[in-house]
Design a protein around this nucleic acid. Sequence first.
DNA 1: GCCAACGTTGGC
DNA 2: GCCAACGTTGGC
Length: 159
Amino acid sequence: MARRYWLMKTEPSAYSFSDLLNAPRKTDHWDGVRNYLARNTMREMKKGDRILIYHSSAAPPHAAGIAEVAREAYPDHTAFDPKSEHFDPKSSPESPRWFMVDVRAIEALPETVSLPDLKSNPKLSKMPLVQRGQRLSVQPVAAAEYREVLRMAGLKKPR
DNA sequence: GCCAACGTTGGC
DNA sequence: GCCAACGTTGGC
């Protein structure tokens, strides 16, 4: 199966692409997704798939870096922890409701690509990200869209 | 801080 | 199963 492409949002004040770059082996688990559609999308991810990491609630919001799927979906243990802000009493180790993947940072984009720039590129008009009202924290990206974002970021060699 | 657009919850 | 109320996301 051909490699696929995805986009994951994060609020940089909570967890930024730099945090991922500085994590051991540049790898971390992506916990806390509590939306069924986003969860289902994560379960489609395969090891080696590429991920655009997007900083939401920034000024301006922007694509910050690229990463890859390091481990495919497995139960999100933060849902089992009553002390976690992502705790969900309806999820249990026996019957997990929420899942996460591990992601590994590949590299920061040479130039971040702002949301206004993404919106003004007609080639990207079909991305859920730029469509009004889309709130998905995990979403698919077409291969051509991925390449276009990398080109806008000044990354000559697609990764 | 505002608020539009959704998703979820719960009464019926 | 419907749908109003409520909560969350996230751009502005």
